[in-house]
Amino acid sequence: MSASVALADYAREHAQVHAVRTTVFVEGQGVPAGLERDALDPLSTHVLARDSDGTPVGTARLTPERRIGRMAVLESHRGRGIGEAMLAALVAHARAEGWPEVGLHAQLHALPFYARAGFVPCGPVFTEAGILHRHMVRRLPGASPVEDVDAAAAVVVALAGHARRGLGIYSRALDPGLLDRRDVVDALRRFATRPGRCQVRVLLQDAGSPQREDAPLLALAQRLPSVFEFRQTSDPVDDRYPSAYVFNDTGGALFRPLGQRFEGEGGIEAGHVARRLAHAFDPVWERSRPCTELRALG
């Protein structure tokens, strides 16, 4: 990142905050100038990102309503990790304040950005300032409710991004509609191809269906056989297990009580859920058979 991020003194630096927001929102997105500022600005915690010469290039705020917003980075400085750094600074401030969770209203195109930071979509799509948004929440710590497939995918993307070396997946047949989504497969690809030794253990009840349906995750695994390992349950008790889940080695988890549905709970700071799932996963893994038939490229 070529910029520094720090909490701003709004009374002294408000002109710099609004200069960035006006460029991004009013001039860039057509948001009415009257909507860009509001009564919450003097009451909120703001961050400013500055280039190496001190020029403001990004800003965001955290309101007393425990909502992150007005996330803006100048177009010339996007793709450098500035947004991620500002988001992390505001999450850290919320945690220091002892808040149990923090939320935000994400423009639909920005959902993947916030998902990678551990935010989970909730509620319906709505319009704000003429732009489609969805509410997102991150527990500090804890598991958030997962309401639909988009929320489940957001959690899996975050789990892959925040894993250190290991991921565990328990699924009936690679969860069509979830584990074959492009954003999910791309997140698992990024994890599997990062430097260092990584491992993805996938425990299936039905290994034949993904093979017959050319599941995208299976194709990825066949290109990276040193990272992905598949096993199929062989104990009748395990075959009747109704749930599905994903967990990583840094305390993140997604648990869906009914594997054929996407509702459940999850997050990147769900340590108690992750420990419970890992404890249940390991003995089933040990007594299940390796799926050597899934390793060969077609």
Results as ranks from 00 to 15, higher is better:
E84I: 06
E97M: 14
S171H: 11
G98R: 15
V31M: 13
F191P: 04
D206P: 03
R138T: 10
A11E: 11
R50I: 10
S144G: 00
F255P: 08
R134Y: 07
F230S: 10
A173Q: 07
H93L: 12
A215W: 03
F191W: 10
T250E: 11
G98Q: 13
T45V: 12
S171E: 08
G266A: 09
S209T: 15
G264V: 07
E13P: 07
A117R: 08
R181Q: 10
V24K: 03
L174M: 11
F126G: 02
E75S: 08
H93D: 12
L297R: 14
S171D: 08
V57F: 04
G251M: 09
L111G: 05
V237H: 15
L254D: 05
A8G: 03
S226A: 11
L297E: 07
I268K: 04
A219I: 04
A215Q: 05
A274Y: 03
H135K: 13
V184P: 02
L179V: 04
A11G: 10
S171G: 04
R231M: 09
A6L: 05
R189A: 06
V5M: 02
V120T: 12
H279E: 14
Q205L: 10
V184E: 04
P236L: 13
A173K: 00
A221M: 03
P290I: 12
A253R: 10
A94C: 02
P257L: 13
V120A: 11
G130V: 05
T63H: 03
F119V: 05
R190E: 10
R139N: 07
D235P: 02
